[in-house]
Structure formats: C-alpha cells, structure tokens
Write a protein that binds this DNA or RNA. Structure first.
Lengths: 226, 226, 226, 226
DNA sequence: CATGAATGAGGATTCATTCAT
DNA sequence: CATGAATGAATCCTCATTCAT
C-alpha cells in the first residue's frame, strides 16, 4: 500500500498523449483555417481538417470563441516573437524597425483571423496575446527615438496603427499583387524617419490643410440601430 | 411607333413612377445600412428601413449582391466626386493630393461596405464604380509627378493601396480614437513626397533589407478558398 | 389619386389569411405536442405536424419559449374558463368546488406542458395565463367559505396546491388507471369540507404529530452545485 | 471448489475491493445528484462527483438507466424502511398512517429522481425497489382498516397515489413554501378517515356529481408517443 | 480493469431567396 | 406589381455511449 505505483502515475499521463495530439491537431487545423478564412469559419470545417469529431473539439474548447482565442493567443505570441527576433538581428535601430515590419507583415500579414483581431486593438480593450506585440513595438519605438532616428512625436500607437494598416494592405493584395505592400511599407517608413525637412508630428494632428471637413459627413454611421 | 399606343405608354409609366420611388428608397436605405454595418447586413433590415416588402426589394435586385453593387457604384461615384472636388479646390498639386486623401477618408472612411469592397480592388477584377476613383487618383498622381513633387516610382496603384490602407485605419480607430488616422496620413504623405534624401521607389521593391524572409511562411492561406 | 383604393386595403389583409392559418396550425400542432410530450419537444416535430417549415415557425415565434408561452397562455385560459363554467353551472357552492376540480382535472389533467408549468406556480412568479385560474379558485374559495362549507383556515393557495397535486395524479395514472385520481379527489374534497369533527387548518401547520423529523434529512438537495 | 485456487481467488478479490469501493462511490454520488437534479442529470456530473472515470462508471452500469435504477432501488428501500419505522413507532394505527406520510414526505419528498420514478408506478410495470414501499402501505392500510379508522373502500393504491400526489406537492413548494404540503397532507388524511358523515369510497368512483365530462376532451394525448 | 478522451446524432436558431395572395 | 410570409440549409452546441491507452 505504501508501495509507489510508478506505472499508474505513468498510466495517468498516457491517455494524454492522444489528447494532446488531438488538441494540437485541432489548434493546428484551426490555425490554418482561421488564417485562411478568418474567425467566421464553420466549426465543422476545423473538426474535419483536424480529423476529430465535434465532441472532441468541444471537449477541448467548450466554445468556438475559446478555440479562436487560444489559436490567436498562440499566433500573436509567435508573431511577436518572430518579428522581435528579426528586429534584434538587425544592425541598427532603424534597420530593427524596418526588419520588424518586414517580418511581421511577411509572416502574418496574410493571417486573416490575426488581422481581424488585430484590427480590434482600439475597439476591444484586452485582446488576448496582443500585449506582447505592443511591448515589442514600444521597445522599437524607444530605441529608434533615443537614436534620434524617429520623427519626433511618433508614438507606439502610431506604429501599431501603421502595422494594422499595412497588414490590411497585405491581405488586400495577397492574391494578385503579393509584395505590393512592401512599397507602402517603404513609403511609410520614410515618412516616419526623422529628417531635416520633417517637422515633429503633433499630438492627434491632421495634415496641415488649414481647413476642416469640406462637406457634411455623407456617412452617418453614428446612428447605430440596435 | 412611340405614339401609336399612348394609353399603353401611360399605363406603363404610372407604375414606373412608383417603382422608381421604391428603387430609390431601397437604395437610400441600403446605403445607410451598408455604411453602418457593412455588407453582412440582413436584407430584411434594408427592406424594413426602406419601407418596402422583400418581394419589391428582390424584384429590383434579384440578388443581395446586386443591390450592394448598385449602392456601392453610387457611393463610389459620390466618393470619387467629392474627393476629386477637394483636390480641384486645392492650390497646388501637393495640396491637391493632401486634400484628396483628407476628404476621401473623412467622408467615406467610416463607410463600412465601401471600405470592404474597396479592399477587393485587387482581388476582384472589376468592382463596380471603382473606376472613377482610380481615374481621379491617376490624375493626381500625374499632376504631382509632373510637378516633381511625388517621389519617383510611385504609381497610381500605390496611391490606391495607401487609400485602402488608411481607410482601414479609419475604420479601426473610429469609435475610440477618431482622427488618429490623420497622423498616419501625414506620415504617409511625407513618405510619398519627393526629396533630396529620398531615392526613387523601385518597381515592386521591398525595403532594402538585403535579406529575404527569415522563417518559413507560417501562414499557408493559399489552399482551399471556398 | 385622391381615389381611395379599397381593394389595396383589402389586399393588405389578404396575405394574412395564410399567415393566420399557419399561425393557428402551428399553435394547434404545438398544443397537441405540448400536451402529449411536455415542453421538451423538438421544435421540428411541431413544424412537421403543423405542416410548415422551420422558418415559418420561427417567424411567428422567434423563440421556442415564445411558442410554448403562447400555447400555454391560451390553454391556461381555456382551462380556467371551462373549469369556471363547470363551477358556475353547479347548484351550490360545494358542488361548484367539486365540479370545478372535476372539470379542471378531466379537461387538462393530462396536458403535460400545462401541468409542468402549473407546477411552477410557486417557483416562478408570474406564469403566463395562470392568473385567471387563480382568480377562479379565489372566487370558489370565498363562496364556499362564506357558505360555511369550507373548513376554516383553507386558503386559495391550498386549493391551488391541491389542484397541482391532483393534476399530477392524473398524469401518473392516465395510461393504466384513468379515473383513479377521482378517488383521491373525493377524499381531498371530503377533507376540505367543514364539519363538526374537523378542527380549523392552522397556518402552515403540519399534522399534529407532536414530533419532528425522525431521521436526519437523507436528501440533501439544498447543496446545489452550480 | 472455493479453495482450489486460492491465489486466483485472491487475485480476483484484490481488484474487486477496489471495484466495490468504486461502485459504492458511484452509487453514493449518483444518489446525491439524482436527488438534487432528477434523472436528467449529465452522467459526467455523477462521474465527477464520485471521482471515477466514465469508463468505470459504464463498466458498472452499462446504461445510465441501470445506474439510476440501482440507486433508486436502494433509495426506495431506505425510504420504505424509514417510513415504516416511523409508522411502527406510532402509538395507534391512525398515528402510524400519519407518521408514515409525515416521514415519507419529509424524508424523500424532495428527492427528485425518487419522485419522478415513483410517478411511474402505474405506467411502468415493475419499478425496482418500489415493492417494499407498497408492502408497507399494504400493512398500514390493513391495520387502519381493521381498526375501523380508515374510510371503507380505500385501497392500497389510493394511499400510494396519495403519496405520489403529495410527493409532487413537496417538490413544487420546496423552494418557496416549504411545509406547505403539510396542510394538504392533513386535509387528505382527514378525508381518509372513517367517520359518521363519510360514505364508503366506491370502486373507481368519481365524486358524486351525477354528470359526466362536460366538454369533449381538449387534450388528445393518446396519439403518438415516442 | 481504470481512465477520460472521442464520437456523432440531435436540438435551437438565422437568413438569403422564393412564392402565394 | 407590391407584399411579407414561407422555405430549409447552415450553424453552434450538448450529452449518452464507446474505445484507445
């Protein structure tokens, strides 16, 4: 009775091998499908591709949302890591910034669900896994700023929004004009760079047009029904 | 021939007056709803707001898509016109470009369906109504280019993609950080401007990182589109 | 133009003929199925029996619960009315009470959904349609009480609970021993009647056993999980 | 024969000790859960509370129903025993009857699964474990009848149905009006008692209304049971 | 023999589109 | 020709039961 039962202890973990395989198959399949089709996917498609039944899927992830969040957290993490690594490998702060965007967009710009959720950065307070990415950008921003390379007034939020924005460009041109977004990236980075003829970016400033909105707002989206 | 059967002609027109009124009510309502909620709206919501029955709606537009396209063609047209006007009113080619973006984004950046479909510019061959916008941009591009203000190598497609990209920024920050996109616009415009320290933009060039993609592409979105 | 269009007005109501037929078919089918199987029925069974598609059913009743409530309100109303009529037709207050129970149990005792919901009288504050029944019982209680026929201390709630209780007896014996519940009814009514050797029913009194619970409560239902 | 293969016997017993412990844990947990939530509980909840896996549970009880029946047989037995004891402890036949109901309802009236299955007394031929309870009631009925205390014509079935009926009353009022059922019990017992002004209860008699059913049966539950 | 993961049919609900009035 | 009711495939999720480890 006092005898330990090592094989039972082992036996306790044995069934998990299967389970973990399945869990991973599900996440793998879900990641694929979410990348391809965004968060609106049919749960059954994920089950089919991962080779498990609906029940198995729902055992691991009680709500579709749970699965989506899990996958996205993972992918946000991978994303942040790979983009950060690219930045670290760079020679100077500006190259770091460049490499960061380059890698971030090349690697995950085509991931529909990631981009969908990334777009919610400002609408939804705490998107799972987004934090890490923000930290990386923070870092880059500080580094480039300290080196005097970044146009004064540029914030982490600006860099985030640029990433969201360019991520969308990637999605949009993916099928027919892959890499076209790279041109936009170069343009934006040039616009971000500090320079003699570049005045600082004022807080929440519009371009110095001196004029306001020309016409009455034709899009009345503020009157949300329901 | 046109006057042979006057009463039949009259008979034909009487219902058409109604019909036209209905058609316009539908389009008006659809435009509103599409702007607010994007193309995923329930057709019933459109019918409800326009005050016509589903049958009438489907008589005018046999598929939801037909209605959406019709509305978007109209809105693309209005969009192009208003943005073009802003450009025309500007004093110089560069101000024209600035005003164009300013107006385009302020006016329709929040129009969800427009932005959704605008994003399809490269994926779908001929989006209804998009042509005019492209013409306007073409014009602006040529003008600014001729004045030597635009960085060499920048194409109409670049400017279009920038608009798509910034449009997305507008959508994404609309609720919580309105106007934040303006900072991105300024940055991008600065990056677009010709300048001493600005080399020409090479055809489909990536930023001069000298390196390719760091990791294998983790997002395999090319397989199985529905 | 100023001419009224009476046929259009008529035309507006025409489509409803179908709709009303369907609505009634749905309610009829639902009433049947709910009576037979209780509130857990498959919605598709109701759709099938009423000969309409799922969409039609859900157009009329957006939630299953709505349909159930509608049917139950109707049936509670019919129930109260028929039982009340039986009471009214009776010669004296006591016969009224007797007839009331008789009719109530004969008519709807076998209605599973009604009895299920009736059972919730104390658990759920305001069951749709239950009010009328309570009013009828109130009336009967007062009448019989005023006539000195009802054992003092008996309340409307007692009579309600008796009805719930006997309703269950009907359900339980329906298949194999129909009418057996009648014996219980007679017993209960006799126990309800005022009489020389019948002391008043004290408020919330247990039978005068003089003793409490004999054993510790073997049913620990109070520790509800979740 | 029993001693031919002692080590095999031992080998057989070792696992069985475990097995028995498990079986009892399952039954214990099931009893609790069934009492709380009735027979519709999720089997997993039982497995969880008993601390065994689903496989073990299903090894002991191949169908959910088997487990339920086993538990209920036990609980019916305990129920019968405790109620019988209360009756035995009573001073006279009438007190015995009173105490029996009192104890039966106080002890198990809130046991949802018991009451659910008890309700099947007439629908299902041989409910496991119900027999003992019937025997106890038989006894009480005979005793009270012999003492001339029970209204003539009252049968064991009547007393059983009364118990079912009052059991339902307990369930129905448990949360909001505990003990309210006691009033109904007193009423019923008074109605059961023999007395001057109490005529015998005729076999399967309806109350002496002299009339039949007033309306056509509005509840047609006889068709189509699944 | 215990474990708990896997299975998949079944149930409520939505919405583009068709059709009777 | 307008109306809005009808249709039913598609979608998320649950739970009794089986099976690999």
């Amino acid at each position: 009775m006092a005898v330990v039962e090592p094989e039972r202890t082992t036996a306790r973990r044995a069934p998990r091998a299967d389970s973990i395989r399945n869990r991973e198959a599900i996440i793998e399949a879900a990641a694929q499908v979410l990348a391809e089709q965004g968060s609106t996917v049919d749960v059954r498609e994920i089950a089919r591709r991962s080779g498990v039944g609906m029940g198995t899927l729902y055992r691991h992830f009680p709500k579709k949302e749970d699965l989506v969040q899990t996958v996205l957290r993972d992918d946000f993490t991978k994303w942040a890591a790979s983009a950060r690594q690219a930045a670290i490998d760079a020679e100077d702060p500006w190259a770091a910034l460049t490499e960061f965007y380059q890698q971030a967009l090349t690697g995950y710009g085509r991931h529909r669900a990631i981009m969908e959720n990334f777009a919610l950065t400002w609408a939804v307070p705490d998107i799972e896994g987004l934090g890490q990415l923000r930290l990386v950008i923070d870092e880059l921003c500080a580094r480039a700023g300290a080196a005097g390379l970044l146009r004064p007034g540029v914030t982490t939020d600006d860099l985030l929004l640029l990433l969201v924005s360019l991520g969308h460009a990637v999605q949009v041109t993916d099928e027919c004009r892959p890499q076209m977004w790279n041109r936009l990236l170069r343009i934006s980075l040039d616009g971000l760079r500090a320079g003699r003829h570049r005045e600082p970016l004022p807080a929440d400033a519009a371009p110095d047009t001196g004029r306001g909105v020309h016409h009455a707002d034709p899009v009345r989206t503020s009157t949300r029904r329901r």
